[in-house]
């Protein structure tokens, strides 16, 4: 098998509030023999808010990011559910609407770029499952997480809207009964925890304007995992991670109980199972300590 190579769109949090997400992505890619070409030219995807203000601008900026992946001739890999949504949504719209694509390209031309639609866009979680495979991961595990009950938290934008989400990967996923993260937990030797909130929203996107709603949703998610005897949660989304890891106190107040739950990034979980050093995975950057390793 030739070496896997992707264009990495890090998104903004990986370099700011979730440095551990960037660190663990790099560490896991190295272990899995994946080459990542970082798209250092990329701008913010707009996080599903810029489009509320100016949709065309959002399309142009996201098309520019994709154009850089196309220049490398590589599939774009995202490590954030919302980056995945915005980038894939842009691709979907432009590929379906030649007129819109032409309008966007008129702008990109000004800076010597073109959006062609030649690069696929997929979240790292699905790149691992589709291109490496769960069996291979299982083989490579050196430190199985066998003593842990791990609660998967999927995050909305990797599973909904399902039509768009399923364009990005080969292994089909149902938003009502998602399995990718459960399968990955099991491949890493862990026990996957089934609970009602696993495919629900963490509330991140209204954190500022509707703090109560955001806190209740985060609270329900952590409580659901706790009530089903999870030792930790795991998520492929850094925004979910921020909510679950840094906002547990607020969330607990909002639903009237004490909450605390260590939360791993999907990459950290895989990294631990593959024998990466916890420091290298950035576990020291969590607000809720991860002290079982």
């Amino acid at each position: 098998m030739s070496k896997l190579k992707y264009a990495l769109f890090t998104g903004c949090t990986a370099k700011q509030s979730t440095p551990e997400q960037y660190m663990s992505t790099m560490a896991v890619a190295k272990k899995l023999g994946i080459e990542l070409v970082e798209l250092v030219e990329a701008s913010c995807c707009g996080a599903s808010h810029l489009q509320d203000y100016d949709e065309f601008l959002s399309l142009v900026l996201n098309a520019r990011n994709i154009a850089y992946a196309e220049k490398h001739g590589l599939t774009m890999v995202t490590i954030c559910n919302t980056c995945q949504l915005n980038t894939a949504m842009t691709k979907h719209k432009l590929d379906k609407d030649p007129e819109l694509k032409a309008k966007v390209n008129e702008k990109l031309q000004e800076v010597g770029l073109v959006y062609k639609g030649t690069s696929e866009i997929t979240h790292f979680l699905y790149a691992i499952i589709d291109d490496i495979g769960l069996d291979k991961i299982k083989e490579m595990v050196v430190k199985p997480l066998s003593q842990f009950n791990i609660a998967p938290f999927y995050g909305c934008h990797n599973i909904r809207p399902s039509e768009l989400a399923n364009e990005g990967h080969k292994t089909p996923e149902s938003p009502y009964n998602p399995t990718s993260l459960d399968d990955l937990i099991i491949a890493c030797g862990g026990e996957s925890v089934d609970y009602e909130e696993k495919n629900k929203c963490c509330g991140f996107h209204v954190e500022l304007q509707a703090p109560k709603t955001a806190a209740v949703l985060t609270g329900n998610a952590i409580a659901g995992a706790m009530d089903n005897n999870a030792d930790m949660m795991v998520t492929p989304c850094p925004l979910c991670h921020l909510k679950l890891d840094t906002q547990a106190d607020h969330a607990g107040e909002a639903i009237g109980r004490e909450l605390e739950m260590p939360v791993l990034h999907m990459q950290q979980m895989v990294g631990l199972a593959l024998g990466c050093d916890p420091k290298e995975l950035g576990l020291q950057h969590h607000v809720v300590d991860v002290n079982f390793v």
Partner: peptide, 28 residues
């Protein structure tokens, strides 16, 4: 926990001039 970067440590996209130009020309 090292989750907040000082203003001078926040990265800037490469080829920022392109982004600035596009924001100007594509805003509606």
């Amino acid at each position: 926990k090292g989750k907040i970067q000082m203003p001078w440590n926040i990265p800037t996209s490469k080829n920022l001039d392109e982004i600035k130009k596009l924001v100007k020309s594509s805003s509606t």
